[in-house]
Design a binder for these strands. Structure first.
Length: 656
RNA sequence: GCCCCCGUAGCUCAGUCGGAUAGAGCAUCCGCCUUCUAAGCGGACGGUCGUGGGUUCGAAUCCCGCCGGGGGCACCA
């Protein structure tokens, strides 16, 4: 049974305060920013000011006076401070061995097991349209979702990561149409997603030009009648535009046909090839999934039809006969919002019979939560590079006895907030309150470049593959110029890959998810300061110390095991122990709030503290007893920092 | 016009239960490699936390107004 060392400390503090006659329900402990104020502090003296009619400082003093060090194992001192804080100091003589043993015993699971209840969580992320290669915004989505999944797993939840493939949508249809009717030669070594993407961009660009063309046509005005004085240029332009518009109309009709064909599973092989290519990017970044959900399967197995039939039972869902929604199947999401106008509603199925995005999404979420009878089968899609099996929905295959999730987390960009709210609201209205309240939209901000917004449609996006290539290339250059001596070419290649991937992933998780961020490749490949490499570098130093301890100093594992932790009295050593002890709390908070940037922050802080320890506390040149104790500490920190890297998906390296 | 999110150092950003002198990285300048890897470490410079009020012993953090930026407000996805 894993223990949380900090909580053990907190329990002692609570028991001390209770013994001082303080109501436990008002006690809150926090961690002072500066360790000169101890490891924990409480503000109870401020809260008791009125009740006791005494200055907080006096109250704090009285409380602290009641402390008897003999009575507590982990508390060393209780001190009044400032205007009325009470600070608690850790007793490292007992705390240090406690933490080290805890890390040793829990190993790679250290940090978990402190949640109150194990939940089954579905995390859906990536869900990139199958039309072109990933851009940098998709990387943010996938990395965030991946780290959220990892954090929830580490915390102790049961997680299923899903990737939804909208293979019946407009985007996919445009790409498929491009390949079928306007094929372009594939370049030497070009990835399938980049190749298809080029054709998609052309088609999408053509369609996007329609309003512009129409406006231009209007500007040109009507053709002048016989005996014309109109400039021939205008006449020629009008003819040309009219011809283009006619083509556009035909193009759009063909897209509709393709969309229909996609629903029946045609071109599935094209979409699979595209997905495979996109997944290569994911796998390169260490992002893996449990299941790919295909929209076409949901359509073909009549999951959507069944869902619609189901929610039609709700009085809020009906076919509108008049007004702006005449002929469409709508769900009234907010009746109170109705002024003299119509009530607020969402269209589920258009009057032309085609379901809307929101309509499909509602049905999809009913399926996700297991609110519909399972019609889908499951097949093995392929083996992922990490050795796990990726499953796919299917029309034929195995049944899977999957229990319904307690919680569904959708990692979707912030500009999809409204449709996501609509889905939530509609689920509620349709009578699925339980599901609605356990559906969470993890919104993340847009990624722009210093040049401005990125747009997949316009083809002004930054390719994820290009960014990773560049990060790896720069890393490789520097690895080569640094030490080529004891590294093989293959060794350098692997390290560069790990450094490049680590840099990209770290960049994406270090920010508050909700915030819009400005992406600049030069920030990613600078490799100075607060980057993925900084954390990896600390690990390289730890590995070097531990390696040399054996090879150059003949220290064996047994000697390290038997080390006397009482010798770890240096300020930097205590700081390392204290930080390591806070890891379970960081994991729990990240799992609860999904603020995965806290994990990156933790990694950076721990690496920083290690750098300072590295500067101030020689390990290999210390006296043998102290050396053994420090080696034990280094091994413990290494275990935890590697553990954090595992959560972040930043690859651990042992040399540079 | 309405709704949501965001304004913290020259730039990119932390600050997730309101707490003690507001933190990093980059950039600029200075210093540290015969001793565990200098992709590192130390120091300097740099802030009326958009702005005006309010709540509080205490506000970057909570509430209200205003200003600025972004996103969203279709039978598009």
């Amino acid at each position: 049974m894993p223990q949380d060392c900090m909580r053990a400390f907190d329990r002692e503090i609570h028991s001390f305060l209770s013994a001082q006659g303080i109501d436990p329900s008002i006690v809150r402990l926090d961690t002072p920013a500066d360790r000169q104020f101890g490891e924990r502090a409480t503000n109870v003296a401020f809260l008791l000011k009125k009740e006791r009619d005494q200055p907080p400082r006096q109250i704090a003093q009285d409380i602290a006076q009641g402390f008897d060090p003999q009575a507590y194992r982990l508390i060393q001192a209780v001190e009044p401070a400032g205007a009325g804080f009470i600070n608690f100091r850790l007793n490292y003589d007992t705390f240090t061995p406690f933490v080290i043993e805890e890390v040793r015993a829990s190993g790679s699971t250290y940090g978990g097991g402190v949640i109150s209840e194990v939940e089954r969580v579905v995390v859906e992320h990536t869900s990139v349209n199958p039309n072109k290669e990933w851009h940098i915004g998709h990387v943010r989505n996938a990395v965030l979702g991946d780290v959220v999944g990892r954090a929830l797993r580490r915390a102790g939840h049961t997680v299923a990561v899903q990737n939804y493939i909208d293979d019946t949508g407009l985007q996919a249809a445009e790409a498929v149409l491009g390949l079928r009717d306007f094929p372009e030669p594939r370049r030497e070594g070009e990835k399938y997603d980049h190749w298809l993407g080029r054709m998609y961009v052309k088609i999408a660009g053509e369609i996007a030009s329609e309003p512009e063309l129409r406006q231009r046509l209007e500007e040109l005005g009507e053709p002048v009648q016989a005996g014309s004085t109109e400039p021939p240029d205008s006449a020629r332009e009008r003819v040309s535009i009219t011809a283009r518009l006619d083509n556009l109309t035909r193009l759009k009709q063909r897209i509709l046909v393709v969309m229909h064909e996609l629903e029946t599973g045609q071109y599935h092989d094209v979409i699979v090839s595209l997905l495979d290519a996109q997944l290569q990017t994911a796998y390169r970044l260490g992002i893996y999934y449990d299941l790919v959900n295909w929209e076409s399967h949901l359509v073909q197995s009549h999951v959507f039809d069944e869902a619609i039939e189901g929610i039609k039972q709700s009085p809020k869902v009906f076919q509108a006969t008049e007004g702006r929604y005449a002929g469409a199947l709508i769900i009234v999401t907010d009746e109170s919002a109705s002024s003299e106008d119509e009530p607020k509603a969402e269209v589920l199925i258009r009057s032309n019979g085609i379901p809307t995005y929101v309509g499909k999404d509602i049905a999809y979420h009913m399926w996700k939560f297991g609110l519909l009878p399972e019609r889908l089968k499951y097949v093995e899609f392929h083996d992922q590079p990490d050795g796990t099996l990726l499953w796919s929905t299917s029309l034929e295959g195995e049944n899977r006895s999957s229990r319904d999730p307690d919680r569904v987390i959708n990692v979707i960009a912030v500009n999809q907030t409204l449709p996501q709210q609509a889905v939530n609201q509609a689920l509620r209205v349709a009578g699925f309150d339980e599901a609605a309240s356990h559906l969470l939209h993890l919104a993340y901000g847009l990624v722009s470049t210093r040049e401005g917004k990125i747009s997949g449609r316009k083809g002004t996006s930054v390719s994820a593959d290009a960014v990773i290539d560049e990060a790896v290339r720069v890393a490789h250059e520097r690895v080569r110029e640094k030490r080529s001596a004891d590294l093989t070419d293959e060794g350098m290649r692997q390290i560069s890959e790990a450094v490049g991937v680590g840099a990209v992933r770290y960049f994406m998780v270090q920010y508050n998810p909700l915030r819009d961020i400005v992406f600049d490749v030069s920030d990613v490949v600078s490799y100075d300061g607060n980057t993925g490499l900084y954390v990896q570098y600390a690990l390289v130093r730890m590995a070097a110390i531990l390696r040399r301890a054996g090879t150059d100093h003949g220290v064996d594992g047994g000697e390290i095991e038997a080390a006397n932790t009482a010798l770890l009295q240096h300020e930097q050593e205590k700081r390392l122990i204290f930080q390591i002890a806070q890891y379970p709390d960081t994991v729990a908070t990240a799992a609860r709030t999904l603020a995965v940037n806290l994990i990156a922050e933790f990694a950076y802080d721990l690496a920083t503290t290690f750098s300072q320890f590295y500067r101030d506390c020689g390990v290999l040149n210390a006296e043998p007893d102290l050396r053994a104790a420090r080696l034990l500490l280094v091994r413990t920190v290494q275990s935890v920092l590697a553990n954090v890297c595992e959560l972040l998906g930043v690859p651990v390296i042992e040399r540079l």
